[in-house]
């Protein structure tokens, strides 16, 4: 996913910009962006093993619980913040979104789409969705705030966040096709470039 994501957002990332990646994992995305765009990138991660991997790659990283610590870094002026597949795990996704747009000019958010048809079939049969993108049972999942593409865009509207660009990914990991025509039904994931 990370390598594909770097391809999608490459054109959104200015050369030599200052980037912060919330939930950066092992730092692969920042490493790609460093290679392609010479960004100065900081990762934010809570898992020690992933942090070790970031350091191994030479990617600066901060150990932080995003739910608790976003305010601490308000003074830093970033060009771009990234939150890939993490926003649905936060206690207050709406607050986090606004904070990200205060500490950076633009932000990239990617999220799994609960409106995807397979999820809907699961729900119609009376069960919480389990799909390749959302593989965990309801009691194990970290995803406490799942939403559909429509829900997310409505939130942006409500918070006066403008969507500068968006890309939808279908079940094969590609863009286009049916996911372009009706993303809320056919996209497994939405990738957004946001600004306020």
């Amino acid at each position: 996913m990370a390598i594909k994501l770097s391809k999608i957002i490459n054109s959104w990332v200015p050369e030599n910009s200052k980037v912060i990646d919330f939930g950066c994992g092992d730092g692969s995305l920042l490493k790609e962006l460093f290679k392609n765009k010479q960004v100065l990138g900081y990762g934010v991660e809570i898992n020690d093993t992933k942090i070790e991997k970031c350091i191994e790659k030479g990617i600066p990283v901060i150990k932080l619980d995003i739910d608790k610590g976003l305010n601490d870094f308000m003074s830093s002026n970033f060009d771009l913040s990234i939150m890939a597949r993490s926003i649905q795990c936060l206690k207050n996704p709406d607050l986090a979104l606004n904070r990200m747009l205060e500490l950076s000019k633009r932000c990239v958010v990617t999220l799994p789409n609960l409106g995807y048809w397979r999820c809907r079939i699961n729900l119609a049969s009376g069960k919480m969705p389990i799909t390749p993108e959302l593989p965990s049972s309801w009691y194990e999942t970290e995803n406490i705030h799942l939403c559909t593409i429509k829900d997310f865009e409505n939130l942006c509207l409500k918070e006066n966040i403008s969507i500068k660009d968006k890309v939808f990914i279908n079940r094969n990991g590609n863009q286009g096709g049916l996911s372009k025509i009706n993303p809320n039904l056919f996209a497994v994931e939405g990738v957004y470039l946001l600004e306020k």
């Binding site: 200052k18 100065l40 900081y42 020690d48 942090i51 970031c54 350091i55 030479g58 600066p60 990283v61 901060i62 150990k63 601490d72 870094f73 003074s75 830093s76």
Partner: peptide, 20 residues
């Protein structure tokens, strides 16, 4: 330590901050 990290980031220093 976090205070140093924040000041470092303001100066674009390649700095990591980890609490164990």
């Amino acid at each position: 330590g976090k205070e140093i990290q924040i000041a470092a980031m303001d100066n674009n220093i390649r700095s990591s901050f980890v609490v164990l």
